[in-house]
């Protein structure tokens, strides 16, 4: 069967005409509709390049990228993105930051001024889901790092994307906040069922959240291991302290260590 996101034999090099650094070479991966996929790998292996490919921000030199059955030939606009840097606009309140994509993406863009109240309610509801009820009038600098990252997630989800791309979104947070946000992410995914690709260097995060973990090689990156994660859902946080869980983490860790020495 074909997947929701399909990269086939992708090669991508930066620089003019692809003469520079070879970031990805021979990368093939398939993510099914509604699946939560995690991509891990040694640093500099081209994980972030993968994100840009799947959202159509850049095009591969060879190979194909398909999303939702269509070959990607430009920004896909059904995707939401969140990065490690929450990049909230400091002159906008949390609510207006979250609503920013609605001012860009159709059909919301043309409806926004007419149905502003309904959209505002939707943003408020989403903020409540991530635990930010009552913070919609606050400016980003009045929020903690964790809260900014929560509103960043809301911004990535406000237009109901069918594909969510996360690039180390919890990387800069303290351990407790991170675990809290894992649970927020788990619940959001369970509720809305969007396809997710999470790029991370945190193996526990990858195993806790995802259905499948893809391990990338060192640059030029390709997928060297695909590991299904079969723990039942909903997964309690305590799972991360159990032996089975740690076995999987260790197994993945060994693959990455191998990928690093192979480089």
């Amino acid at each position: 069967m074909t997947g929701f996101v399909e990269l086939r034999d992708v090669r991508l090099a930066y620089g003019p005409g692809g003469s520079g650094t070879l970031a990805l070479d021979g990368l093939t991966m398939t993510v099914k509709r509604g699946e939560f996929a995690a991509v891990v790998g040694p640093s500099g292996c081209g994980k972030s390049t993968l994100m840009k490919l799947a959202t159509g921000l850049i095009r591969p030199q060879t190979g194909t990228v398909e999303v939702a059955g269509h070959e990607v030939d430009g920004p896909v606009s059904i995707a939401g993105m969140a990065f490690q840097n929450p990049s909230m606009l400091p002159w906008r309140t949390t609510l207006r930051n979250v609503m920013l994509p609605l001012e860009i993406v159709q059909p919301h863009r043309s409806r926004l001024s007419k149905e502003r109240e309904a959209y505002q309610q939707r943003a408020e509801d989403l903020l409540a889901v991530v635990g930010l009820k009552g913070f919609s009038d606050k400016y980003p600098w009045q929020l903690s790092g964790g809260m900014q990252q929560r509103s960043n997630l809301c911004r990535a989800l406000i237009h109901d994307p069918t594909l969510l791309m996360l690039d180390e979104p919890f990387g800069a947070l303290d351990a407790f906040t991170r675990e809290e946000l894992w649970q927020v992410m788990r619940d959001l995914h369970a509720e809305k069922g969007f396809t997710t690709i999470l790029v991370t260097h945190d193996l526990r995060e990858a195993v806790f959240l995802s259905d499948r973990v893809f391990v990338m090689s060192a640059r030029p990156g390709k997928i060297i291991v695909e590991r299904s994660i079969d723990f039942g859902r909903p997964r309690p946080l305590d799972l991360t302290y159990e032996a089975d869980f740690n076995d999987v983490v260790h197994e993945l860790r060994a693959h990455i260590a191998e990928a690093r020495t192979a480089a």
Binding site: K52, T55, G56, L57, G74, P75, V76, S77, A79, M81, A82, F83, N85, S87, L89, L100, P101, E103, I104, V105, Q106, R155, A156, H159, M165
Partner: peptide, 21 residues
């Protein structure tokens, strides 16, 4: 910030959108 630009461009924002917003 390049991240901000990526977020908006992935949504299909034109250069004018990014400038104005």
């Amino acid at each position: 910030e390049p991240e901000m630009e990526d977020v908006l461009r992935a949504l299909g924002a034109k250069k004018l959108d990014i400038m104005l917003k």
